[in-house]
C-alpha cells in the first residue's frame, strides 16, 4: 500500500523518539504540536497522513512525495496569533486508485514567516504560494515571481491574518 510506503519514507525525516502515538488527537487551538508524523482517521478527517515539519525539512519531504507520484492539491496558510505562529499547509493526493492523502504542515514565526518555495519541485505550486503570500504574507524564499495574484497589485495587506481589519 502506498500509504505505508509514504509513511515509512516520511518517517526517515524524523528522529524516532518524536513520533507521537497514532490517533492521538490534538486540538489546534491549543497551539503548536511537536513535529512529527500522525496517521489520521480518513473517515473523520478526510486525509490519511499528517506530517508536521521544520521549514528546513520541507523540500526533502516534498521531494519524497514527488518521487512517489503524488500531485499537489493546494497550499494554504493558517494564522495562529495565540502562539505567534503561522502554519503553511500542503495538501497532496494521488491520481491512482491507491488512495492516500498526505498533509504536510510547517510552522513559522509570525513576524518572520519565511518558508522555502517548492516551485522547483512542483511547478504548479507557483500560484498557490503567491495566493498564500497574498492572504497571509508568508514569504516563500526563492519563489520566482512573488507578486500579488488575487489581490490588487499594490496590495500591502494580508486579509486572512486574524488581526486584519477591513
Amino acid at each position: 500500500m502506498i500509504c505505508d510506503k509514504t509513511r515509512q519514507a516520511l518517517a526517515d525525516l524524523f528522529p524516532p523518539t518524536t513520533e507521537p502515538e497514532p490517533g492521538n488527537e490534538e486540538k489546534p487551538s491549543e497551539g503548536a504540536r511537536s513535529n512529527g508524523l500522525v496517521e489520521r482517521d480518513y473517515r473523520v478527517h478526510g486525509y490519511h497522513l499528517d506530517a508536521q515539519l521544520d521549514p528546513g525539512q520541507l523540500l526533502a519531504a516534498v521531494t519524497i512525495l514527488d518521487e512517489l507520484a503524488f500531485f499537489l492539491e493546494s497550499i494554504t496558510g493558517v494564522d495562529w496569533p495565540a502562539t505567534e505562529e503561522m502554519e503553511v499547509v500542503y495538501d497532496f493526493s494521488r491520481y491512482d486508485f491507491d488512495l492516500c492523502r498526505v498533509v504536510l504542515r510547517t510552522r513559522v514565526n509570525r513576524n518572520t514567516p519565511d518558508v522555502p518555495t517548492i516551485t522547483g519541485i512542483y511547478a504548479g505550486a507557483n500560484w498557490h504560494e503567491r495566493e498564500t503570500h497574498d492572504f497571509f504574507g508568508i514569504h516563500f524564499v526563492g519563489h520566482p515571481h512573488l507578486i500579488p495574484l488575487l489581490l490588487p497589485e499594490d496590495a500591502d495587506f494580508h486579509p486572512l491574518r486574524k488581526d486584519f481589519q477591513a
Binding site: P28, S29, V44, H45, G46, Y47, E73, D91, S93, V103
Partner: peptide, 8 residues
C-alpha cells in the same frame, strides 16, 4: 469539533 477536515 476542533480539528481539521478535508473533503474532495
Amino acid at each position: 469539533p476542533p480539528g481539521d477536515y478535508y473533503q474532495a
